[in-house]
Structures are given as structure tokens and as C-alpha cells.
Amino acid sequence: MDKTISITPPYNFDRVLERLALDPLNAVNKEERLIKLPYYQPNGQGEVITVQAIGTIDDPQFHITFETDEDSNSKEKRIREVFHWDKPLGDIHDHFLTTALHSIFTEHIGTPLVLEFDPFASLVKSIIHQQLNLSFAHTLTERFVQKYGWKYNGVWFYPRPETVARIRVEDLRDLQFSQRKAEYVIGVGEKIQSGELNLTQLEKESDEAVIKILTKIRGIGPWTAENYLLSALGRPNLFPKADIGIQNAVKKLYEMEKKPTIEELEELSIPWHPYLSYASLYLWRSIE
């Protein structure tokens, strides 16, 4: 089943693909301006959805291809959520033109928040990436997904919670996971499998409640909880001040001799409310 969708400008899908291409597990083709997405069906099977840009920044249009007609409304709804197609960027862009981030927003105009394709995959990925440089974090995540997930039609799917819950710590250690990181990943799988952690329910909670729930879980601190709010739930007003990338980007933008303190970031970010998540995204983009 094929469908063409038009959305409100500005929207720069090429910027989206640039960022998604940083993750080697994503099936991105920048030349053809498309990505193949893993769609996790309720029955545990996977389907690949292809999204291709056929428009421009000022006239954004997309061609979507579903493998089957079944439940197409739910699949389209998920694609719209992932790419934030129903959240126009014009007002956000105008807001930042009056701030110190105006040059970054001008350069990267139309760059939306894009969600991870699956909430559980987002949480696992965040845990794996904790306290690692980006290159090795991607390598470790690749090893994990390629061993315990599955590949279908050229697209990698993360393993489901029930699969992760059955993994042995020593098997992850063989992939170069630390002892604790292995325990954390398996523990999250166990909590979801047992019903103790319900990711669907988290979508209905406030930012503060999500952070409180997630940080009770061993191995999940504020950085991972905030990252989940951003990358899995797309919350609009988050600014992870402890993130090294954010600190480096602000240091570069303001030509500071040292990385800013948490207190300095708190003060500098006041004018960026209520769109702190977009400030975070564009700051990351400025140094990628």
C-alpha cells in the first residue's frame, strides 16, 4: 500500500536522514532520500515501512510504502509520531530567531525532533550508550542487535523484552559489555516482561513522573530518563544539562574557555523555554 502525505513547512527531511545515518543500524539511503523503518507489530513480528521525501523544505511531501494494508491507520499514526509531522516547526523557529541560538536555527531550519522507532529499543539503546564514546556505543549496540534481534528486508529489529530477559550476563560480557551494563539491560527486559514496567503507561505520565519511575530502576539515572523522554516520547521542553554534547555545543557557541557549569546552562536556557528539546537538538546538530 502506498500513500502520499503533505505536511506544514518548514521541514528538512535531508537533515533528518543525516542524523539518522549516524546510527549504523538505521537503513538510510540519503541519495534516494529515504529510510526503511522497523515497525513492531503487536504479535511480535516485524514489518518494514519505507518513507521517502519527494518534496522540499518549503513544500514537504512524503511517499510512504506499507508492506500490507492491514492496520494501515495505526502504522501511519506511528510514522507521524516518529517524524513529528503533526507538530509544525514555524512557531518554534520564529521563537529561536530572537535568542542566542538564532544562527544555529537559521542554518538547520526545519530540523524536527525524531523519535526512536520503538520505545523499548530506545530505552535499551540509552542504557548501552551510557558513559561510552559514540563510536564504541554504536559498535556495542550493533553487536547486541545483530546477535539477539533479527533482520528483515534489509532492516534490523531490536530484540523484544522477553528475549532480552532470557539473556545471560556472561553472554553480553562476551560482546564486551561491562558486568553492570549487562545486568542493567537484562534487568529492564525482565521488568517489562513481568509487567513491573509498562512503557505504554509511561506515555500518559508527566515528565517528572516518568523520570521518577525510570530512575527507580537499577542502571537508569537522570540522563537516561531524560533521554527517554526526548527520544522515545518526544517531550518538547527537556534540556539535559549533564550531557557532554550539550556542554560542548554551548561552549563553542558562546566561545567559552571552559565547558559551562550546570548553573550557567540553567541561566542561559531561560529564553529557550518552552522548547528546550529543540534547543538541545539544534545544539547537538551544531557540533555533529
Rank of each mutant, 00 (worst) to 15 (best):
F62I: 02
S277Y: 01
D59T: 13
G44V: 13
V51P: 00
F239L: 12
W272D: 03
N248E: 15
I57Q: 04
E257I: 13
L132Y: 09
G234E: 01
S194Q: 10
I262E: 14
S277P: 03
Q176V: 11
K30M: 12
P159E: 05
E208G: 11
H95E: 07
Q61F: 06
I262P: 05
L113E: 03
F105L: 09
Y152W: 13
F96P: 00
Q193C: 07
E70G: 14
I109F: 05
I213P: 04
E196F: 11
Y39Q: 06
L113Q: 06
Q52A: 08
S277N: 06
K204L: 12
R80A: 09
Y40R: 07
A137R: 06
P161N: 02
K147F: 11
L202T: 07
N133S: 14
P161H: 01
D86V: 10
I35D: 00
W150I: 13
L20H: 07
E170L: 12
V51K: 00
Y282F: 15
E196W: 13
F62N: 00
Q45T: 15
N43W: 11
K77H: 12
I127F: 01
G187C: 08
P112T: 08
E203P: 05
I246Y: 02
S178N: 07
E31M: 14
K258R: 15
P260K: 03
P9D: 06
I7F: 07
E264V: 13
S206F: 14
Q247P: 03
K259C: 02
I79C: 03
A100P: 10
L140R: 01
W272C: 05
P112C: 10
T139Q: 12
I128C: 04
G234N: 02
H129W: 13
G245Y: 00
Y275T: 01
D174P: 09
Y158T: 03
P24G: 10
K75H: 08
K36S: 07
P236E: 05
E142A: 11
D118L: 02
V114Q: 03
D71V: 09
Y152E: 14
A53N: 07
P271M: 06
A27K: 05
H138I: 08
N237W: 06
E255K: 15
R285S: 05
V169W: 06
I127K: 00
G110L: 02
K77L: 15
T261F: 10
N133P: 11
F120S: 01
W150Y: 15
T163N: 07
Q61L: 07
V114N: 02
G221Q: 04
H93G: 03
D174R: 15
P271L: 05
K77E: 14
S6F: 11
V155N: 01
M1C: 10
E76P: 01
V82K: 00
G219Q: 04
R218T: 12
P42V: 09
Y152R: 14
Y11A: 02
T215V: 11
Q146Y: 14
D94A: 09
P236V: 06
V16E: 01
Q247W: 03
I167K: 02
N153L: 12
I104F: 14
I57H: 04
R235S: 07
L140D: 00
R166P: 09
F239P: 00
T68R: 14
E18H: 13
R180F: 15
I64R: 03
K147P: 04
I49L: 10
E257T: 15
Q247Y: 04
N237E: 08
E205A: 11
L20C: 09
L197N: 02
V82A: 03
G245A: 05
E107R: 12
G234M: 02
S126V: 08
W150R: 14
E67L: 13
